[in-house]
Design a protein around this nucleic acid. Structure first.
Lengths: 209, 209, 209, 209
DNA sequence: TATGAATGAGAGTTCATTCAT
DNA sequence: GATGAATGAACTCTCATTCAT
């Protein structure tokens, strides 16, 4: 600490100047080359700082990685929270969850891809923390599902399990959709609707009317 | 084709026994430590061969990795092929796809986890090949779905997209289910049924007589 | 001269208190971790000052080290000077030199060990200065020996050589005596007497009436 | 191991070619620059091998250092053992111990100086092992002293303590004697005789005839 | 005076790969 | 076929030091 203090007003974590620049640079490089492909030297260069500065703000490479990942999930959570609050109901909620997640994953170079990529393997040491991050996100969605179930708007399922299912559903398709071929293009077009449809059908209550 | 031929590969490729021993050792170590965590020295030791021998059978580490991955997918495909052929019908097919995939991923230490882990990231250089491997598997499932659609047993969707969705669905839940906590236990218990239910509801034809 | 003046240095050099605090902290850390084991950051923390302050008082780490060492030798000289002055005679002088040196080296954590440790190696750049410091101390003892020789109280030897011999004698045994085992305990008990005996026998005049 | 095997006939440890070359190069550099001053890169260059080779033979820098030190002590022990065996008696034994130790320390650049330098501090982690090495040497001398005591050729003292005293005596004077000035020259000339005289007087039995 | 963010050379170590045997 | 000694680029990380404030 100390490093991160300096002026407390901007965004959230990783403070003002350098720390943010480092984190953003790292996000790009981790997304592009993976954890092991992006060396500290490379990150420092991309951020335009010295290696020393890098270690001034983050105790280790793993900390840089986790900071990046945390920021990505925080952002995703914030976006998700911003979406409802009003009384939007069932099918709409599901559709929005799917579309939002899809959009944020498919979006370009940023750390977005990291989320779809890093939640397993890669850095064995970090696994518990990474899974915890993902769990936080999944649980937020699970809570939304629970409320909808309580209101009878979707059928009763295991909420957390269903949340993970929805995330995986979207991530898997997105991963295919970012490739460069014709099929990928097709998927980017139809993906959100098809997935929303799938999700909604999976969750809608039985039509026992 | 291609899909059906693949499980032959693992026979003729595996050489006189040494190649197979190496590949199996590598499968264990990659699954346990990831691509970068498992060094060539370690693999050689685990396989009980010299480094020289290792390089005699595989030109590079990446080749070892791809051989492992190919073998895993081949095995998965073979299992999938073994399941139907007879006239099993729609909900049953879906259920079996889900359960099989779930089982093979959740199964302990083996290369199973590799499949759920490596399809993204980790080794950027290998991405195209890894995605191609996954595509092959996805396309096999897509073909199954297409046939079912043709017979009117499930509703019409984008088959490949749907296949990816199903894979992601299962993988995501499995990844959570292999953790050690109570929730994980719960998911391992309920996972297959819940997921099969989700999948079937997502795919079943509209009940409009 | 020189020898007598030195213990004044530690007063005027130590500045307004901060310099002294730094030097004392450094003494502890150098003694505990060696020159390379004690970083400037660590010293600053132990002293409760900023790195900036540290560099305000000492141009470099080597200067901190030399200041510590100088202070240790000054203190040792001061103690030595305080001991005689009156007409204590030969065997007593020898005994006291040995005991004093032994005691100050064996004394716990303080900079004492530094003296027994740093007079060789560790920081090649500083060797000349460290040897000079040691020489000053040795020469003080050599002068004492010379006087005793002049009075015929001890036999004639090369005074400086003999002084070094006495220092080494004590340091070597002390170094062994600070270990934690039973032998070390034994040596701490018997060390001073045995060494004093050895030294006295080595130096006493031939008994030829 | 494996590396060290290859052809088992030469000297003792550190086998045939590279390992020996590395160790000798390291001995020179550690003696000249101290443990921290001699980097692995430098050692590799001095030995004319790659860094990889260096790590092929020694697991870590500390191992290189200990190998060097062990070799020095082994050599010293071997020399010591070679000297008597016949029935040389008391004053001669003492003189030889002193002279031998003096000679081997004063001898040029080799690892000789290391022994006089490294037995304290420098690498805190290695202290126990270094002290153990020194202890082994001291105990050998202590055994010689014990035998002489048993035969009544020298007076009864604490043998190990006395051994350490003798070593320190010589080392301290040697350290001064390797400097370049006139006094050093003087000490190199008179050192052995003066020290032998000191040692003999310290140890000879009381003349109670 | 006093601070601590910033620097960057250099540290020890790893590891995929080569090649003479 | 099979070995493993040898390579060296690249890695993460440390630390004495500087300097704008």
């Amino acid at each position: 600490m100390g490093a991160v203090r300096t002026n407390v007003r901007s965004e959230d974590k990783a403070g003002p100047g350098l720390a943010r620049r480092i984190r953003d640079a790292a996000a790009r490089l981790f997304a592009r080359h993976g954890f092991h492909g992006a060396g500290m030297r490379l990150i420092a260069e991309e951020a335009g700082v010295s290696i020393g500065a890098l270690y001034h703000y983050f105790p280790s490479k793993e900390d840089v990685f986790m900071a990046v990942l945390r920021q990505e999930y925080d952002q995703r959570l914030a976006e998700a929270q911003a979406l409802w609050q009003e009384g939007t109901s069932a099918p709409e909620v599901v559709r929005r969850v799917v579309e939002l997640h899809f959009a944020s994953l498919a979006a370009g170079e940023g750390g977005g891809r990291l989320v779809g990529r890093a939640w397993q393997g890669e850095v064995p040491t970090l696994r518990p923390q990474i899974l915890a991050l993902r769990e936080e996100y999944a649980q937020y969605i699970a809570r939304l599902l629970s409320k909808a179930m309580a209101r009878g708007e979707i059928r009763r399922t295991h909420p957390l399990l269903t949340a993970y299912a929805l995330l995986g559903l979207v991530e898997s398709v997105t991963a295919r959709a970012v490739a460069g071929d014709a099929v990928a293009h097709e998927m980017r077009e139809e993906g959100p609707q098809e997935l929303a449809e799938i999700a909604w059908r999976a969750l809608r209550p039985d039509e026992a009317g």
